[in-house]
Amino acid sequence: MVLRWFARQWLVSLGLLLYMWAGLATPERALRALQSGSNMLLSVVILVVSVMGLVGLVQVWISRDAVARLLGKEAGPKALLLAALCGTLLIGPSYVIFPLLMTVRKQGARWAVVTIVLAAYAVKLPMIPLEVGFLGWPFSLARSFLTLMFAIPTGLLVERLMPDSNKHETLEI
């Protein structure tokens, strides 16, 4: 039972093994690694809890019909544009966006929508002022424009590579 849990949560097992190895080799550096890791985790706790709150809201309030209508096959190209817009506006690290997107996917959104959101997400609209500060307007504008241009083809390509039916998917978040 315990062994099965560690096999399923293999990332946890990997982390534990690496830390054991680092701890034996260089205890101080392993401790420093643990400290910087936990500092970063603490800095995103509020964010993680809030986004999970959002996942709960989406699951209960947004009906499958509505998602399928807006982001499913039947919505046509509009769904793809909407996905690009959502991706541009989203903020936060990707590992909290994944469960949110999977929830939307389970409610009937296309694979292309999930991919386009993740691609357009690289635009980082809320952070553009920062990019301009470091790299200048021409660079920032060209990068955002091209990222958006590539988002939809990327989404459609990934969707073509996915099986049509839902039976192979692991739906465990």
Binding site: A33, L41, V49, Y95, T103
Partner: peptide, 30 residues
């Protein structure tokens, strides 16, 4: 119901998040 669903998702993500941040720490150090 939304709160319950949120708690359930959070609960399932916790081991994964702990592991990821532990690995990020290792990465930054080494």
């Amino acid at each position: 119901q939304s709160l319950l669903a949120a708690r359930q998702t959070l609960w399932r993500m916790i081991p994964l998040l702990l592991a990821i941040f532990a690995l990020i720490g290792l990465f930054q150090e080494f």
